[in-house]
């Protein structure tokens, strides 16, 4: 697998967790892609930033709490996590509210990063 071609994959998350299946599906595809030794970056924009909110407790909605899995990304060598500054602010959130270390970016920086990718997958 390590002999193959490495491409730059970007996953763009714009949906909140639990209200739809997108966030969980995205996370699974990120893990699969990382297992194939690809250059993965994950971006959180709009309601996607809620995925990283610390302290999720899903017992009451009888749904699996997949937020701990974001902390496993480092072990999969997925270390490029980017959060849109404006999306964070619009939700009253700061970096301290997030359960993993991220790079908070301005829109123009994010746009440039997107332009450098080989593959972009949206969720």
């Amino acid at each position: 697998m390590s002999e193959g071609i490495t491409k730059k994959f970007m996953f763009v998350n714009r949906t909140a967790p639990y209200g739809s299946i997108y966030a969980l599906e995205s996370l699974e595809v990120v893990l699969i892609t990382a297992a194939f030794d690809q250059d993965v970056s994950v971006v959180f924009i709009d309601d996607g930033v809620w995925q990283l909110k610390k302290g999720q407790q899903t017992k009451g909605i009888e749904t699996k709490n997949f937020s701990p899995t974001y902390r496993a990304l480092e072990g999969y060598d997925v270390e490029k996590l980017y959060v849109d500054r404006e999306s964070l602010a619009a939700r009253g959130l700061t970096e301290e509210d997030l359960l993993v270390d991220v790079v908070v970016m301005d829109a123009d920086e994010l746009g440039k990063l997107m332009a450098e990718q080989d593959v972009i997958l949206s969720f």
Partner: peptide, 15 residues
């Protein structure tokens, strides 16, 4: 228990 997933082989080996 910590991450709510079963790790891929490479990740398990490293961990």
């Amino acid at each position: 228990d910590e991450y709510q997933i079963a790790p891929a082989v490479r990740v398990l080996t490293k961990a």
